[in-house]
Amino acid sequence: MKNIVEISDPKYPSLLKKIDQPPEKLYYKGNWNAALFEKCLAVVGSRKMTSYGRQITAKLVSEIAAEGITIVSGFMYGIDAAAHKAALAAGGKTIAVMPCGIDLIHPEYQADLYKEILKNDGLIISEFEGAFPPALWTYPRRNRIVAGLSLAAMVIEAGQKSGSLITAGLAEKYKRKLFAVPGQLTSTQSKGTLRLIKAGASIVTCAQDVLAAYGISNHKIPGEKLRSLNLNKLERNIVEKLQQEPMRIDALSRLLEVTASEIGTSVSLMQLKGFLFEEEGKYYVN
């Protein structure tokens, strides 16, 4: 049996029908389960994800997906892939919309993620059949499905001319709720999202902001990890500094006037105990 759902089919997602030029046919891989389409959130963002983007995607998406919201994204590397991964990690549902024929995996090197999605009852869909190659014009077409399937869209990191702004524009056009995650004013990967916020997109400061749009209100914020209180003085100083701002060992060494060797030792130990984690050389308090 061919995995196709036509527009006339009752299984065809009703939200998607409401957009201009809905796809006539949807090709898919995985088990088509109507429940998947009930509460969808489009999560899109830059391919050039920063470490902040990675962190915040993991945090927000896992909390949202854990509440049963289906995460829809475009399977591109960067924020898209991070969103799919976060949804899977939280044991949630996810749908990947491909910019190419249903038989292709694009980008190819994310084949592992592709398999993971299918294994965990996710869905891969595309309006293109067979081995239709991705092209410049297929990406915006794909974006309209991502936006069309979802009640709301959340943009995490977007550059000045990011493709995710197209998805955001489409979501607004389809009268869907638009969320944008703020970033640093100095980051080029925040230019797009900040512009969206200025233009009226809802600002996201926690998962609850998004969940409220789906009528979920009693979302519990995972409690702060219990921190062992027997930190020594140096460790306490380090944690204190890192809570203000994540930084490198060099900077800690200068601020605390302690050798890099001693800081390195403490930081390694605290990292192994799970108090700290490292991203691109900078240390963060967990």
């Binding site: 060992i249 060099d250 060494s253 200068r254 050798t259 060797s261 800081i263 390195g264």
Partner: peptide
């Protein structure tokens, strides 16, 4: 200047 860890 700086590069405390690299110097170590």
């Amino acid at each position: 200047l700086g590069q405390e860890q690299a110097k170590r």
